[in-house]
Design a binder for these strands. Sequence first.
DNA 1: TTGAAAGCGCTAACAG
DNA 2: CTGTTAGCGCTTTCAA
Lengths: 341, 341
Amino acid sequence: MARRVTIRDVAREAGVSTATISYVLNNKVSESITPETIAKVNAAVERLGYVPNLSARSLRYRRSNLIGVVIPQTEPGKEFMFSNPFYGDFLSAVEYTARTRGYRLLISGTSVGQSYVEIAQNHGLDAIIILGIYPSDDIDAYKEAKIPLVLVDCYRNDHFFHSVGTNDRHGGYLATNHLIQRGHRRIAFVSGAVEASGVNQKRLFGYRDALDEAGLPFDRNLVFSGNVGYEYGIETARQIARICPDVTAIFATADIMAAGVIKGVSEAGLSVPGDISVVGFDDIFVANISSPGLTTVRQNIKEKGRVAVELALDAVDNPSSPKRDVAIPLEIVERDSVRSL
Amino acid sequence: MARRVTIRDVAREAGVSTATISYVLNNKVSESITPETIAKVNAAVERLGYVPNLSARSLRYRRSNLIGVVIPQTEPGKEFMFSNPFYGDFLSAVEYTARTRGYRLLISGTSVGQSYVEIAQNHGLDAIIILGIYPSDDIDAYKEAKIPLVLVDCYRNDHFFHSVGTNDRHGGYLATNHLIQRGHRRIAFVSGAVEASGVNQKRLFGYRDALDEAGLPFDRNLVFSGNVGYEYGIETARQIARICPDVTAIFATADIMAAGVIKGVSEAGLSVPGDISVVGFDDIFVANISSPGLTTVRQNIKEKGRVAVELALDAVDNPSSPKRDVAIPLEIVERDSVRSL
DNA sequence: TTGAAAGCGCTAACAG
DNA sequence: CTGTTAGCGCTTTCAA
């Protein structure tokens, strides 16, 4: 490794002191520096190819300009955290927004026995964006460490942190009501694990809301919950086709699952939407690709990512400002996977 | 921000010096420390919740345990760098491998006017993995900065850096030959930009190889190159359906495009594989989801990510070791998008 | 076996 | 207007 060019080298080259270099580099207008000096410094920086060392700076400043992003392992021990394209879309938006604000992203799953709090402190992360899970074990550690946190898609918030999500209950209602309006009466609900105060539970509540409103009975046997994945969608659709012949519609709480459902339905020798209508959730591009095109509840993932970063930076700059819960709007996007009965 | 617990605090708590703490923390066996001291130190660390500051350490060590990953902007100015799920899969594998080796990932696109070399030096990145593009402008800067680099899917390598990719020419051959073997004669080639020494050019060469081998003429009008995206696949398929009625098969050099092609063909009122057969490239899960299932050239993305990290770390540890070019094997995966004529 | 102290590169208070 | 210097948290040589 070639020796780094330091601020010292630049100072020598420019014939001024290191402090002056630092002032010029950071546009410290409070110090008044002659234009000539500025020019000399810039020339020296240029000539030497000087690049500031952020490790040193962050040691000094106690800030790293780094935001951590924690993506949940979809399945324990599974290394493909991005198996759902939703995460990629989200991360893209986060990265873009962070970059325009001068922040970089540190991404890391967590190995067993290692808390993300530790990683955060290790690298002096300015803020952390956590997706989908409420790290119940760690949460006190976060509070204690006073690391600004943004919770995404998490309802177990105690207003100690900012959060961003959607009105999942409303989303569940939207999807189910869409089907009911089109004459469906026996509607299956397919989702990942339904945990207390998790998004799937909320969506399930919304599903029940719509049922109730229409005076339809809630049938526990039509609720299928497993894991958020394409495979599980296939399996469940097969199963539904086999044991619930009266079901005419399926609401899957993630497009990736809905895609599996469509596949499973056709593998069972039935057609979408001919025999079974399907509504998804997210509106990732898979909804477009699937055939038939998937009618789904769109959430603006890009916006979600943007807001997550805004909130994170707000928490950094105003640690004591009141914590906000932002909900990204939802809307039904109609494609071709729903039939009117 | 609560004041950090530093090694000093731990030293005071344990009643020893900071050096001793450091020795214990880093298992410096060269120094012999009594078990009692070790126990005391560990207890103090535990009690105080001490977490090492990696900025300080990296300032000292001149290494950050950070690997940079550069994902190309698929389109200039477009913020969604992950529009192709391929990247998410790749990144997952990279993250997992890096983590098991004690490294974290810094991801960042590059804003205009900012070279990634600068980012790398800013954060003291130990190595960088660059996907898909040869940063021709920067390359000298990388060499000069002596930052270990791994080039992924890049043929413009001068053996100054490690690289990992696949035998794209062979892949192109595989796909095209698969179609030829099944009786297809008029086969369109649909890809992103065909640049000199880019993957698409290689795949195009492979396409020609297969044509040549079978004694089929190469028709320039059957080569469509635009950008790697679902939309472009749709457009091109429509166009092919309209102006090339004799085409019976399409080789799309990315599954994401192939998915678009399938959509476009059906929008044109034709069927896959009834009227037109389609072969893709990558075998991302979209190949599974699309209907009909996409026959495609599989590359082991996970392996690609793993190897990229291995090579990166090798370059860190052995800066002067000879540079390797690793090719990940390819194979045809048959699904339902190809018909035998 | 342990401690004191220098220094990694940078910033900012203070002095000149 | 510019320079000197202390110190951010850590490692490691050298001395005790």
